[in-house]
Simulated assay, not measured.
Amino acid sequence: MSTPGEYYNSLPPVSKAYGTLCLLTTTAFHLGLLDVSFIALYYPWVFYRFQVWRLFTNFFFLGKFSINFGIRLLMIARYGVQLERSAFDKRTADYLWMMIFGALSLLVLSAIPLLQSNFLGISLVFMLLYLWSRELPTAQINIYGLVTLKAFYLPWAMLALDVIFGSPIMPDLMGIIAGHLYYFLTVLYPLSTGRNILKTPVWVHRLVARWQVGGPQVNSPAQPGNSSSSGTFRGRSYRLNR
C-alpha cells in the first residue's frame, strides 16, 4: 500500500496542482492568513480598480472546512484525476486547456445577473464531474451505499443531493452548462461537421513543455498544425478518430 506522500506524488499534474491550491486556500482562510473577500470575483473591482487577480483566485476557494468541502476535494481527487489519466492521458496541455476554457466559460456565465457568483470553484469541479460522466457513462457508481446508478447520471444525482441538503443549485448548474459546452464543441460538433474548432492553443503546449510536466505528450507543441485532435475531449463510446 502506498503512503500518502507516494499517492500525492503519483497524481497527474493539473489535477494535483488545482486540488492543492484549493486545499491551501481554505487552510489559509481558517488560519486567519487570508481574507476571502480579497480573492472573490467582483466585476466592478476587476474593471474599475484593476484587481484582475480576482478572475483567477476565485476558483481556488471551495468553501470552509466542512463535509461539502471534503466532497468537492474528493471529486477533484477522483473524477478529475481519472479524467486526466483516461481521456487526457499524455495530453496534459489539452487537459489544462479544458480547465482554462471551462474557467473562461464560467466567468462569462457569472456575468449574467441570475448566475452571479463570487466563487466559481464548485462550478469548475462540477464541470470536471460532468465531463468524467461523459467519458465513462456506463460505469456503476454507488452513492453513500444507498443508490447505485450509471455514471452518466451522477452529476444530476449530486445536484439533487445539494438541493436536498440546502446547498445552492446555481453553482452546480453552471458547471454542468460549462461542461456540456466543452463536450459539444469537442465531440458533438466535430462528429456532425468533421471540424474541431476548439483546438488547444500553441501557447498552452509551450507552457506545459516549459514546465516539463505530464511526461511525453501525444501532441507536439512544435507542430501545432498536425494536432487535428488537439483539445478534443474523446468521450467514452463517442471517441473521435485520432
Rank of each mutant, 00 (worst) to 15 (best):
M127D: 01
S86W: 04
K90I: 01
L74C: 05
G194F: 01
L104G: 09
S229K: 10
R78L: 13
Q116C: 10
M127Q: 04
C22Y: 03
T200M: 09
G32Y: 04
L173S: 07
P155T: 08
G215P: 04
Y43N: 08
F69Y: 15
V204D: 08
Y42G: 01
T138S: 14
G145H: 11
P201C: 10
L198M: 15
Y183N: 06
P216V: 09
W45L: 14
L128Y: 07
F29R: 10
F65I: 08
R85Q: 15
T3Y: 01
G145Q: 06
L34E: 00
H180Q: 13
L106C: 06
G166C: 03
L191K: 15
R206K: 15
S66Q: 09
F152P: 02
L240Q: 12
V218F: 11
N219F: 14
Y182T: 04
I164L: 13
P216N: 10
Y238Q: 12
G179A: 05
L159V: 12
W53L: 11
T148W: 05
L41P: 00
S110G: 11
T57G: 04
H205T: 12
L240D: 08
V202S: 12
E84K: 08
T193L: 00
I112V: 15
Q82S: 14
T138L: 15
T27H: 08
S229C: 14
R49I: 10
A178T: 01
K90Y: 03
A178R: 02
I143H: 03
I164K: 07
L83A: 07
L96Q: 04
W53G: 09
G145L: 10
P224G: 15
A151F: 02
N196L: 15
S105R: 10
S237Y: 13
L74A: 15
P155H: 04
T26Q: 04
V147W: 11
E84C: 11
Y153A: 13
P137F: 09
Y238E: 10
V108L: 14
S237W: 09
D94W: 00
T200E: 04
A209M: 02
S110V: 09
R54P: 03
W53P: 02
Q82H: 13
R72T: 02
S37C: 00
I197M: 11
Y18G: 08
R242G: 00
G215Y: 06
T26N: 04
V213Y: 07
R49Y: 12
L74T: 14
R210W: 15
A103C: 14
G235R: 02
R72I: 00
R195G: 00
Y79N: 11
W156H: 10
L185W: 05
W53S: 06
P137I: 02
A103G: 15
F56N: 03
T27N: 01
M174K: 14
R54I: 04
L191I: 03
A17H: 05
G70W: 05
L129N: 05
R236P: 01
S229R: 11
W203C: 13
G215V: 10
L55S: 11
G179C: 01
L114P: 05
N9C: 07
I67G: 13
P190N: 05
I76V: 14
P155R: 00
